[in-house]
Design a protein around this nucleic acid. Structure first.
Lengths: 347, 347
DNA sequence: CTGAAAGCGCTTACAG
DNA sequence: CTGAAAGCGCTTACAG
């Protein structure tokens, strides 16, 4: 029982390998009768084609790639799941690559795409200018690219993201409405959208005539959800809590930080929401089961994934007509999901 | 700027394509001098080889596959992450495939492996006998296979799992020690290890002279973490709670069930741990942040992943000497992680 | 409607 | 140590 090839099948059926190939690809050149006969036979022997040969010949792989910083981040995970689900309805395969926020790994991931004749790429890049020349080369020579999430990247293509200033504005305003004035904004350092995030935060304060205090901007530097930032985070939070006018609210802008800060506040016996309103940027399905359940800003992950695939498939369809596209950046809206960690009542 | 081939490079350097190939593969046939020169050049122009051609020629892909029911299950996710981490140290690529507990999808996933000249497979199969003939064919003709988690599968190969009866015994004994006699065992229906699980449960009761009551075995039928089983689960739990002798403890054997049942018990205002001890089979890192924090049975996921890769790589090394192996099944130990959802004190 | 033949870009046994 | 040549298993322009 050796692995069967088209040549072998042709010999069995007294047809040429080319005819078998055309039949299996449902070419109009082949008669219905012959097709039926060939399909019956290949099904019977469970013929499994060799994709390497096909890919070598055609220059395509029927495979798309999604490149994210960390699949362990629930936003990226959900995004991946959705893409995976959509593509399972097509005959595209999907491969998942992680950069770990490392430019070198990003380059490796992209080269892997080239090596494997990947047909299209959806990526959340490491930095605004990471792998720029390689990405441009790929766009030009290899396959279309869609950028999502970190849409400040300089590559000229379709981009799908959220309006950071707007959503941070809303969350901050929400806390102000709950009577909180001293609000911590917790950020992951060196992430593209921070400037716009801070802008949204400041605008919300300004519109309620609350003075801006730069000590309330807390930036934590980490690149992996597994980095040990717990001690640093606890120290900074503790310091703010023991200041003359302790903070009454905290807005956390990443999934990782949201979970960690909740844990720390519980440990420090801070009463949530009475003494501390808490809103987390998060996509975790467990927000409901947390203690207390966490009010979150949920990114429209599925919509983002849907749009990314839609655009990529569209570019693939028009693959031959380059420069045809007017590239656009799409900003999707986030939603605040209210749970127990925010309320107006105090102790 | 067209994509460069070995032929092209050969022309530029006045060498044959064969020589370039050998140099890049660090063949001993090529002089150090020539190698250095070729490497310098290919690096300068950032030569990226065509893996399809390589794979077609060699019959190998340098890619391993991991096939799981659902990557959204945290056990499988952690397992995947660990494998991914280990392989990033090697030059094997990894592809992830999901079966959604569907035999047809499992067959498709395996055929995809064959199509892509995958070098090795690590799989948690859908059922004890799913895809048996295809798996045997693959083992025989294509590449080695390791089975993990669902180790009751009939394929003869290396298997890595846990001793279900032992760990369920321990968890049950733990609850008995906390003075609980009426203990619910919550299972996902039709999963391989259930018989051994029930045995562990019964043995623990028996050794404490507690009569076995079959109503306490609750089986819920679902195949995806996203299946809507909430109503059914709530109905069954409610019914037991309103029986003359309500249960005082619950042992949940899957991740999905653990989170759902916690949510339901909270909703029904059952006091945990006072009136209900709760132990969940779970790998979620959020166990600590749940309300209350959940005592869990944690599978030795990383060890299982390490062992799986170790065995697979070993089989790959000895690829030519088939039938050389004495296949074994490895049983790894689980650990109970004590948190607030279990204790002896009552109300 | 079917077939013969070239070629995708590599690797490798063989010759020199 | 280097090269010429065959071949991996497909697809497809071309011929008939």
């Amino acid at each position: 029982m050796k692995r069967v090839t088209l040549k072998e099948i042709g010999k069995q059926l007294n047809l040429s390998p080319g005819t078998i190939s055309k039949a299996l690809n449902d070419s109009h050149e082949i008669s219905a009768e012959t097709k039926r006969m060939i399909l019956a036979y290949t099904k019977k022997i469970n013929y499994i084609p060799n994709f390497s040969a096909k890919s070598l010949k055609t220059g395509r792989s029927n495979t798309l790639a999604i490149i994210v910083p960390f699949i362990s981040s629930s936003f990226f995970f959900d995004f991946y799941e959705e893409i995976s689900l959509i593509l399972s309805q097509t005959n595209y395969q999907l491969i998942l690559l992680q950069t770990f926020n490392d430019e070198k790994k990003e380059k490796e991931a992209l080269e892997l795409c080239v090596q494997n004749n990947i047909d299209g790429i959806i990526i959340s890049p490491v930095k605004n200018d990471s792998s720029l020349s390689l990405l441009m080369y790929i766009m030009d020579q290899i396959c279309p690219i869609i950028i999502f999430d970190r849409i400040n990247h300089q590559l000229d293509t379709f981009k799908i993201g959220i309006q950071n200033n707007k959503v941070i504005y809303q969350a901050t305003a929400e806390m102000i409405k709950n009577g909180r004035k001293n609000i911590i904004l917790l950020l992951c350092k060196d992430i593209g959208g921070n400037a716009t995030r801070i802008k949204g935060y400041k605008d919300a304060l300004f519109n309620s005539s609350i003075p801006y205090n730069e000590d309330n901007i807390v930036e934590i530097s980490y690149s992996s959800p597994k980095d040990d930032i717990d001690a640093e985070l606890e120290r900074k939070i503790s310091a703010l809590l023991s200041s003359p006018v302790p903070p009454e609210a905290l807005l956390s802008t990443t999934d990782t930080l949201s979970l960690k800060v909740l844990h720390i506040l519980n440990k420090l016996k801070v009463k949530i929401p009475e003494n501390m309103n808490l809103i987390g940027f998060s996509n975790t399905p467990f927000a409901n089961s947390l203690n207390p359940s966490l009010t979150t800003i949920a990114q429209p992950t599925r919509l983002m994934a849907d749009k990314s695939v839609e655009l990529l498939l569209e570019m693939l369809k028009k693959r031959n007509k380059k420069n045809y596209f007017e590239f656009e950046t799409y900003f999707l809206d986030c939603q605040i999901e209210h749970r127990k960690s925010t309320s107006a009542s105090r102790e």
